[in-house]
């Protein structure tokens, strides 16, 4: 605290210094809250008869995993980095496919009233199906756990992308459409100069929701399909009775999810045109 105050009073403080100070100020409440939560967790788990390990015990028990994420063993015995990488790879494939198909379908239902009437009710029904409910069907159809897991990601991620893109296209301001009509803009020009620029903010809202859902779905899907991946790692740890590893994995899952969200936000900020 003493250093903080002295920095604040320093008349020669650089703007960089002020920035660091500000972000420290913002982080402080988070740090305090985390500390309190950890304390409560530790206290609760120190009670007699506690079934779960406390934070200190978790760190002690999983120390090898923490310090060596790049460990390579046989089969599913891999470091946490590789587990996460395997999961991320599946997400990347499924999500990319969903993004391409979702934007295309969204534009289609947005542009054509007929297509909207035909397809929107179907989308509305399908999007309520929980991701894991697709797994048996995809396993039955694709006969392999790897493509089945990717399909689950795809089918989970595609709905918010379609729906948001569709809404975005439908919400292109009438003014812009009128300009396009009066100028008789060609289809291609309308698409690149009007439709896409004005729909991009909606598309990114969809993409952001979709990335969150994909990450949720992959953990669940991997628990069932097995193989290398953070989902199966959790399941495996549970079956081996090592709850500390489960907890560590959950923390990693949360952090990676947050990171994915931030990445999409970062891209959106670069791509979405400023008004």
């Amino acid at each position: 605290m003493a250093t903080n105050i002295s920095t604040a009073r320093n008349p020669y403080a650089t703007s960089f210094g002020t920035k660091v100070l500000n972000s420290l100020k913002n982080l402080l409440p988070t740090a305090v809250a985390t500390l309190i939560l950890l304390t409560i967790w530790q206290l609760l788990c120190s009670l007699p008869g506690a079934t779960l390990p406390g934070p200190i015990q978790v760190v002690e028990e999983t120390w090898p995993l923490i310090i060596d994420p790049f460990y390579r063993g046989d089969g599913t015995d891999q470091g946490l980095f590789w587990q996460l990488a395997a999961s991320l790879q599946r997400v990347a494939v499924g999500y990319s496919l969903a993004a391409v198909a979702g934007v295309a379908l969204g534009v289609l239902v947005g542009v054509s009233t007929l297509m909207f009437r035909a397809l929107d009710p179907i989308f509305q029904v399908l999007r309520t199906v929980p991701p894991l409910a697709w797994l048996p069907i995809s396993l039955a159809a694709l006969k392999d756990s790897q493509p089945a897991a990717i399909f689950v990601i795809f089918i989970t991620a595609i709905w918010p992308i379609i729906i948001n893109t569709g809404v975005g296209v439908q919400n292109i301001p009438q003014d812009y459409n009128n300009v396009a009509k009066v100028l008789k803009l060609s289809k291609m020009k309308y698409f690149t100069k009007v439709l896409i620029p004005s729909t991009v903010p909606y598309i990114f809202t969809g993409l952001r929701i979709a990335i969150g859902l994909s990450w949720l779905a992959i953990v669940a899907a991997e628990m069932l399909t097995g193989g290398v991946g953070i989902g199966f790692f959790i399941w495996d740890a549970y079956n081996s009775g090592i709850v500390s590893e489960v907890i560590l994995a959950i923390i990693y899952v949360g952090l990676v999810g947050l990171l994915l969200d931030k990445i999409i936000c970062f891209i959106a900020d670069r791509v979405v045109p400023a008004d």
Binding site: D175, Y176, N178, V179, K181, V182, L183, K184, K193, P273
Partner: peptide, 20 residues
């Protein structure tokens, strides 16, 4: 029968494309 550039409109709210 349809809009066309021979009848260009100056719209009340300008209708310029903000990204251009």
């Amino acid at each position: 029968t349809e809009p066309g550039p021979d009848r260009m409109v100056v719209f009340q709210n300008y209708s310029l494309l903000p990204w251009l």
